[in-house]
């Protein structure tokens, strides 16, 4: 049986673990502007990243955006997921496809759409100015708002589909029983559906959180030059600064932050679920 995981396992080792180890080694090297990378064994890059208020702010922005988007997805996604899960009609597969629809368009193309919508001479500002509701364009693009809107639009389908798969597994009778025993719909939701759906909430949140933490195209295109998240900062170091060691260190800090929060988050929800 163990042989079954061999092909996928080998692929992961070859294409992920090996490059990661290589990257880990690079992160300990020293950067020199003239020689680019000098072999070394030092934690200087990690120390610099942690001590520099700029990179601390970048990490905090990333965490705030990721947590905010995850919560927003949960709030927006749960009702839709519930509706989809309880849907009996033959349109159900069509509805699923419609929910997946945003994923059919690439990140960059989708962002181009948002730019056309949110820009200073974009559709929204043009309409508002045309109706004389505003005199100067509203700053809708190149800020945190644009990034959160853009990211939520990408990751929402993941949340909805994960939640709806779990909600489908909750027998309808449990809700009917609750109603029978006098619970109002909200109470039934809070006391019955939500606790039973917690594994879905955990899985969906983890998935969405990881995607948000590592978002690249959306923050670059919609956040603009002043708004920095971790993945673009890593790219900047590799490609613009030629500073591979520091870029690698930032990448590992991003990885560590994502992993720690994912594990802690799942553990908290898991404990709640067992109770």
């Amino acid at each position: 049986m163990a042989a079954l995981i061999l092909p996928a396992g080998l692929l992961v080792v070859l294409l992920m673990v090996a490059p990661m180890l290589f990257l880990a080694r690079i992160s300990l090297n020293h950067f020199s502007p003239t020689e680019l990378m000098v072999e070394a064994m030092s934690a200087e890059n990690y120390l610099r990243a942690v001590q520099d208020p700029y990179y601390r702010a970048v990490l905090l922005t990333t965490l705030a955006v990721a947590l905010g988007c995850t919560l927003l997805c949960l709030v927006l996604g749960f009702p839709t997921a519930y509706w989809l899960a309880r849907m009996q009609s033959r349109w159900k597969s069509l509805a699923t496809i419609l929910i997946l629809f945003p994923l059919l368009v690439g990140n960059v193309v989708r962002s181009a759409g948002w730019i056309a919508l949110l820009g200073n001479d974009g559709a929204i500002n043009a309409a508002l100015q045309g109706l004389h509701l505003i005199s100067a364009p509203l700053p809708l693009l190149y800020n945190a708002f644009a990034v959160v809107v853009g990211i939520v639009a990408v990751v929402l389908p993941y949340m909805i589909l994960t939640l709806s798969a779990v909600i489908e597994g909750i027998p309808r009778q449990t809700e009917e029983a609750a109603a029978n025993l006098g619970a109002r719909p909200l109470t039934a939701f809070r006391r019955v559906v939500l606790p039973l759906a917690l594994p879905g909430v955990a899985a969906g949140s983890v998935l969405v959180f990881i995607l948000c933490m590592n978002a690249y195209a959306t923050p670059v295109l919609l956040g603009g030059p002043q708004f920095k998240m971790m993945a673009p900062a890593v790219y900047d170091q590799f490609v613009r600064g030629n500073n591979w060691p520091f870029g690698a260190a930032l990448a590992f800090i991003l990885l560590a932050a994502t992993m720690v929060l994912t594990v802690v988050g799942s553990a908290l929800i898991g404990r709640r679920y067992r109770r």
Binding site: P33, G241, N242
Partner: peptide, 8 residues
């Protein structure tokens, strides 16, 4: 070459 990183 020496200062590009600092400039960035």
């Amino acid at each position: 070459q020496k200062n590009l990183n600092g400039i960035l």
